[in-house]
Amino acid sequence: MRRLIISLAAGFLSCVYYLCRLFPTRRRIVCITRADNAAPLDFTLIRTWLAEHEPSWEVTVLAKPTVNPLSYLFEMLRETYYIATSRAVVIERICIVVSLLGDRIAAPVIQIWHAVGNMKKFGYTVVDTPEGHSSEVMELTRMHTGYDAVAISSMDFREQFAAGFNVDPAIIFEAPLPRVDLFRDPVHRERQRRAVREAYPALADGRPVIVYCPTYRKDVPANQHEAMERLLAAVDFDRYHFVFKPHPLSRLIFDDPRVITIAGTSPDALYAADYVISDYSTVIYEAGLLGVPVYLYAYDWDTYNEKRGFNFDISHEVPTLFTDDAATIIAAIDEGSFDHDAYARFMARNVTLPAEGTCTEQMCRRLIAFAERDSLS
């Protein structure tokens, strides 16, 4: 039954798409996300740069989460219209309409993904695993089909991304996300740091700020509660502020008045960090761009690694402390034992910055090239 419903939906969308193709194609790039009701920062930066430097290009951002299936049905029809009448389609995660229409889409579809850097396996490399989708779902929804190009932060991950998206490695190009520019901009960093402190005045008393940014886990680890208790017990709250930045999908909550929880990106807690504790999250790249020491609290490494899998051995190849002992991490913070030079070299391998100009400019130039059907360099 599910297969029939999806087939009917794909056929219906195809009919709508071809009807919409009768309308004039505009000099427009449409950017689509289902992560939130607001435009992702990368889409906002793309739209702003093109408005300033290439005003002949219109940018439309469609942002609608898939919370309500009925309302999202109407959003799918809207997306179909814009896909049919735009010169290029940009997505930053799975887009149901793109997957169902697939190769029927005449405009180039560019997947820029949503994470700075990469380390975890995803997509087709985690099919039928606890952290991935089933092969049946992947087949029925035609997940990650229809891409003409895929942007990655470093060609070191070309083969892994090709496998994850099940695409030809030849369509992958190197271009870090536009928001990388903001992490590297000292003026923006200081402005955002002030914004966090203004929103949370307690952070302005001079104590260093430890920000804890764990990755999302589909299943709650059996030892999570104990691990969080050990982490809080290790922190000297007279010396440090402890800020929790939850993953948008996380169910983890700290029921402790000493912990300051700052969700989302307005303001972004990461800018207030003097130290970052993470685990298997690509936030370690964002912290690296900010020049903030990173420590990895891998309290469930054995089970998570078995469920998910990684593109490289982060327990040895990320040049920082990797441990399941919270007290050891806090001791390292106390001692200031972090190799900034080694981490900078790690960052250079994983996020390749453009030789000239900004990441935003580089991305926008490539999008225009695809929209105009220019040959890839």
Rank of each mutant, 00 (worst) to 15 (best):
M1Y: 11
A10C: 09
L13D: 00
S14R: 15
V16Q: 05
L19R: 12
L19K: 07
F23S: 10
F23T: 12
P24Q: 10
R28N: 12
V30Y: 01
C31G: 01
I32C: 01
I32Y: 02
A38G: 11
A38P: 02
L41G: 04
D42W: 06
L45G: 07
L45E: 06
T48A: 15
W49N: 01
L50N: 05
H53T: 15
A63I: 10
N68Q: 09
S71P: 01
F74S: 14
E75P: 01
E79C: 08
Y81G: 00
Y81T: 00
A84T: 14
R87I: 01
V90Y: 00
I91M: 00
E92H: 04
S99A: 15
R104S: 07
R104K: 15
I105S: 07
A106V: 04
A107N: 00
P108L: 00
P108V: 07
I110H: 01
I112C: 01
I112T: 09
H114N: 10
V116R: 04
K120F: 03
Y124R: 03
Y124S: 03
Y124T: 02
T129Q: 12
E131I: 03
G132L: 04
G132K: 02
S134P: 06
E136S: 09
R142G: 13
H144G: 03
T145E: 12
G146V: 08
Y147N: 10
D148L: 02
A149H: 06
A151S: 15
S153V: 03
M155D: 15
R158K: 14
R158N: 12
A162I: 04
A170C: 08
F173V: 12
E174H: 11
L177D: 02
L182K: 13
F183T: 10
F183D: 07
R184Y: 01
R189A: 13
R189N: 11
E190R: 14
Q192Y: 05
R193K: 14
A195C: 03
R197D: 09
E198T: 14
E198Y: 05
L203G: 08
G206E: 03
V211A: 11
Y212E: 04
Y212T: 13
C213K: 06
K218Q: 11
P221K: 11
A222I: 04
N223D: 02
M228I: 09
M228L: 15
L231D: 03
A234E: 07
D236T: 05
R239H: 14
Y240V: 04
Y240G: 08
H247T: 15
H247R: 06
S250Q: 12
I253E: 14
F254E: 09
F254R: 05
T265P: 02
A272C: 11
D274G: 09
D274F: 02
I277H: 02
D279I: 13
D279V: 12
T282M: 09
V283H: 05
E286Q: 13
E286P: 14
V294W: 03
W301S: 13
N305P: 01
R308Y: 06
F312Q: 11
I314A: 09
H316M: 06
V318I: 15
T320L: 07
L321I: 14
T323H: 12
A326W: 05
A331W: 06
I333Q: 07
H340D: 13
A344G: 01
N350Q: 07
L353V: 02
G357S: 05
C364R: 08
R365A: 10
R373V: 06
S375G: 08
S375C: 06
L376S: 14
